[in-house]
Nucleic acid binder design. Sequence first.
DNA 1: GATGAATGAGGATTCATTCAT
DNA 2: AATGAATGAATCCTCATTCAT
Lengths: 216, 216, 216, 216
Amino acid sequence: MVPAMKAVRRARPSSSRVRERTRTLLLDAALRLFARKGVGATAIHEIAAEAGVANGTFYNYFRTREEILEAASVRLAERLQGEVTASSTDVADPAERVAIGSRRFVLQAIRDPTWAAALMRVWTSSAALPMRSAVPILDDLRAGRRRRRFDYRSEAAALDLLVGAVLAGMRTVLERRAGEQHAGHVAALVLRGLGVPAREADEIARRPLPETAPAA
Amino acid sequence: MVPAMKAVRRARPSSSRVRERTRTLLLDAALRLFARKGVGATAIHEIAAEAGVANGTFYNYFRTREEILEAASVRLAERLQGEVTASSTDVADPAERVAIGSRRFVLQAIRDPTWAAALMRVWTSSAALPMRSAVPILDDLRAGRRRRRFDYRSEAAALDLLVGAVLAGMRTVLERRAGEQHAGHVAALVLRGLGVPAREADEIARRPLPETAPAA
Amino acid sequence: MVPAMKAVRRARPSSSRVRERTRTLLLDAALRLFARKGVGATAIHEIAAEAGVANGTFYNYFRTREEILEAASVRLAERLQGEVTASSTDVADPAERVAIGSRRFVLQAIRDPTWAAALMRVWTSSAALPMRSAVPILDDLRAGRRRRRFDYRSEAAALDLLVGAVLAGMRTVLERRAGEQHAGHVAALVLRGLGVPAREADEIARRPLPETAPAA
Amino acid sequence: MVPAMKAVRRARPSSSRVRERTRTLLLDAALRLFARKGVGATAIHEIAAEAGVANGTFYNYFRTREEILEAASVRLAERLQGEVTASSTDVADPAERVAIGSRRFVLQAIRDPTWAAALMRVWTSSAALPMRSAVPILDDLRAGRRRRRFDYRSEAAALDLLVGAVLAGMRTVLERRAGEQHAGHVAALVLRGLGVPAREADEIARRPLPETAPAA
DNA sequence: GATGAATGAGGATTCATTCAT
DNA sequence: AATGAATGAATCCTCATTCAT
């Protein structure tokens, strides 16, 4: 019994670990290439080559480019989720949470341009990513309105203001048309747009960012 | 010498009119297809077919899909220019000009989804369009700051707020997640973000749009 | 680890044998077509068809027509090498070796016009073939000069005389403007040009050709 | 009558002069391109562009690429003819005439590489050029044999030796593998091959070349 | 005659997908 | 599962040729 269990334990998890690893290789490769040349211009054989596996191996994991695109979206959304929550744990004020999140994203575009480029490419190519990412953002917006930190009529418009400005800000720094301070500038304008008084918006957008957890 | 000059005079203008016409056919066809299925998914022979010319004719005008994309961007930017100026002639207040422009774009996404989809696709695929279209917008932003209508530190951030929110708003109405009133909502939030007091921003964003000139 | 190695051991040699075979199919097909209609007039899809593989398979092995031309040159040069050495093993006298080689080439143009036509087409289209094939010829020329069989000032000129006359002789018989005896006539004149006395040159050029080894 | 004649004189010759000039432009352009990239790789529209005329103008003069190739061959053959006769007028000895002609060709490959490259390209692509050019060369060979300057059995072999060695010599200098002195070296070996005693062959091949007429 | 826009057949090339090993 | 050779449909692109001006 014990040896049998051992055998099972060793065989299955290891095989699925290998599988998981190859899957990760493919997804990371896809994201790098999506970032570098866009979703439409990336060929499947390029993904396989970038991942260091054979052509046919791709099809053991994904059936089409759309399928890996969706999977990549999910992966990006998860990282994103991680970013935001890691940044704003222990921060109660929705305004500050929004400011932290906005700045994190713009700053991340400077620190990890590949990630940011992939995010922007996938954002415009996939329907899944915007949907998934909107949820936690909406939570902050709603909480802010409940607590009278924000003041806006249309939730959809508020979301567009926030997401649109942040994406535009990311593009600006990606194209080297602005530096690190751009993150705070954009965040401040967004807060104002959401109804935070100008002074306060500027002040919140200048607060030091909280330490992020040392997670990957 | 004289006959030669005659020949040149006769030949060039007529042939160049034909040339201009075919070029226009191709550009319009490309814009329709870019809007319908995206830049990357549009085959060159489809553009030719849509334009009603032979396959090889495309290459008498453009060398690559990127080249026609750039040319299409320029064309869109010019139309855009026309939209904005047609909308805001006789409007002196920069805040109102910005509000009019923002709403026009979002509304246009409802009235001419093809145009809007092309604009958004091309915007994200081309570097030229953002550059070109930013100029007149910057003029309004600067005028607004000079006249104390706007109050922002970073011009780049203000531009990102405005352009980002408007594009996001266009996407929202394109995807039918909001209706006509979305245009005003977004415009109001943008004005606030640029420093216009909330009440006033809402009021400006609700003013009736001026009649546009009957131009094309 | 062990299974992985096993897999590698099994997979590679068999697949690489397959690969080698397809490559050979393509090269032989290319040589036949180059001979038949010239390098420039041979379409890549014709090579694939002649080789009995699909259109795209060509590109798994060569990128351009020039690339397969170079590879074909190398292959021809190797066969050529084989011809010459097979003909002249056991022949010590460089003059006789040159005579045997020259006659072999011209005769071969009668016996295997395809081979000869390919050789001539490729010779004039490629830079690699002349270089590669010159080496063993130069060896004979130098040996001949060392042993006072030949007497010439410029090695380059001697090479041009020999190679030029043989190629011209091949063209002549290919175009049916001369018969079998042309081989000996050309060889005799070449030997004289290299410094062999007329009588002796004629005699050497008339000696029976040695049997070739039964090699391919 | 006089005005009428004037009119005719002016109109016809001028028109035909223009025509002749355009034809020459096209032929020269074709030869330059044939030299630069080979006959097979030269497109008709390239010839027109190189000649500075419109695409369709080509077809007012030639119907196919083969047609302009043949015309170019004729033109080259005529220049060639001119070269040889200009070089050897007043030279009676056929051996010297052959030496002069051989050296002229090899030297010309240094002085006018375009001409030489075109000659070699066209030589191998066209049947007309070898035929036409062989005639005056054969005259010299036959005269030489009649006067006991040359001593060979096969006329075809003698022609191959001479033409083959000269073409090979041209290629050698074209590819910068030898310098000016190569011309004399090749000529000497050819004379020997044709039966001229070694000493004398070397001496003849070193005689100064006669002045050429100042013709174009 | 010259022009050059238009044509479309044909050749070059890519790439998603299959499959035997 | 992994491999990578093979496939061929689809696309890209060139270019000889025509023809209205």
